[in-house]
Design a protein around this nucleic acid. Structure first.
Lengths: 248, 248
DNA sequence: GCAAAAGTGTTTCAGATACACCCATGC
DNA sequence: GCATGGGTGTATCTGAAACACTTTTGC
């Protein structure tokens, strides 16, 4: 039911974008917790060499914001992200955040496990996963995208505590060590395996042990039990970590 | 540095609004914690009787989003809100959230203490503070504004834990009971005065006792010490409340 | 004196950490 | 056997809740 609107000409001197922060956690065994988090970035053809940006583009008419996010991520990086897993970080609207014209961006974040190799289709001539740490500390991102990734990590960490999104980083069958690996990436520190196990298992319907299935992997040590995702959409109690105490 | 842009015509089939949730806490002594929170709403001249909306309006060219928020709140309700105290709740962009045309809204929330009496200037023919509880439970709000106020309360509650915004509800000199009154409004329950005192006082530079100044009020009981706001912008440790235990 | 709120002190408890110790596998 | 990670049991610590008790006012 769209009516003609006399005020139509009042607005129009800006663009509304959706920018998306695609996060993944590297499985490189040797990586410290702090170095595991990866962000998907792309290179705009007209940008200077070595300057990267989050995949982002204009909202189309009658397109829901999350639909914009996944359309643009696909176009600019080749990566497919599930719509249901997107959640909002915030909206960035300072008049001069883009020097070319007024751009207002709604930022989303999404967590994925095994990513395909990035392969841009258009509007982009390169795309790759880069270390969150590097992007945060060095000046490799255009616009205010460094602020956006910092806010995105914070938002994601909160979601890890209260929702089962950590499972998005895991395969459909996983060990508790796999899951701990993910939490450590966000906590930026090691977590005691014994305490982690108890903490996770007391959350109602967060994870389900698979009937006596065991991984036979190439790792040393006793094989771990496999789990699948439970059905809860809210972690109760939440999975929080206190600061360490001094060793006793 | 605004350039002509060939893609200009691609966008334009929607409006970008800012909607603002102005919260206050009633000082009516008799009110239970749950009934204290008030939301500023207004009546659009073309809306049905008894249907209210959050103050909201179009973003102007080159106008920062928080500036839009306070301009519109002033215009539609007569209330002045401080720009620095606004913080973002989220962006609502579902294609059919407004039946008239496509509207995308960035929502802000702001906490104020003693409000002036609402007095709309234009775009509105009535404005008032209404009970959060009623607005949440009954269907008095247009569009998805009921969702927005719920999200706003949640966002505000988080801010109460981690930042000193609770002080925005208080005067420049206040007692710890005044401050507790505010927290109770968000926790939706009574809080033990003794424990509250300790919790607040151990936060670094959150509140400062005023040199032996004492309220001589009309209240019964021992007069309370006055405090002023400290300088911290982050509550460390945060002011959290656990669920109650069973009485011993 | 009595009621009521401010403010202090103390016990108790839930939840989390630290860590010792046993288990199951690869080499 | 031995190294290594999986998994269990448990002492200890910490922050917070509960609540008894003292102080200071109004009436």
């Amino acid at each position: 039911m769209v009516m003609a609107n006399p005020k139509r000409t009042k607005q129009g001197n800006f663009y509304l974008y959706v920018d998306t922060v695609v996060l993944t956690v590297s499985r490189e065994k040797s990586l410290e917790p702090k170095a595991r988090l990866q962000v998907l970035v792309m290179h705009r053809p007209t940008a200077p060499k070595g300057k990267w940006a989050l995949p982002g583009g204009l909202v189309a008419d009658s397109e829901d914001l999350p639909d914009t996010a996944l359309r643009i991520v696909k176009r600019e990086t080749g990566i497919t992200v599930p719509k249901a897993d997107l959640f909002q970080v915030g909206t960035y609207g300072k008049p001069n955040r883009d020097s070319r014209w007024r751009a207002i961006s709604v930022a989303y974040v999404v967590l994925i496990s095994e990513p395909e190799t990035p392969a841009p289709i258009s509007n982009s001539d390169d795309a790759r996963f880069m270390s969150y740490r590097r992007l945060r500390d060095e000046s490799l991102l255009e616009f205010d995208h460094r602020t956006i990734i910092r806010d995105a990590r914070r938002a994601a960490r909160r979601q890890l505590e209260d929702t089962p999104i950590a499972l998005k980083f895991c395969d459909s069958e996983f060990t508790l060590t796999d899951l701990r690996w993910v939490y450590e990436a966000f906590v930026l520190d090691r977590v005691d395996p014994a305490n982690f196990r108890r903490k996770v298992e007391q959350v109602k319907d967060f994870v389900r042990p698979l009937d006596s299935l065991i991984t036979f992997g190439s790792e040393p040590g006793r094989p771990a039990r496999l789990y699948t995702a439970g059905k809860t959409s809210e972690l109760n109690p939440p999975v929080r970590f206190r600061r360490k105490l001094r060793p006793r």
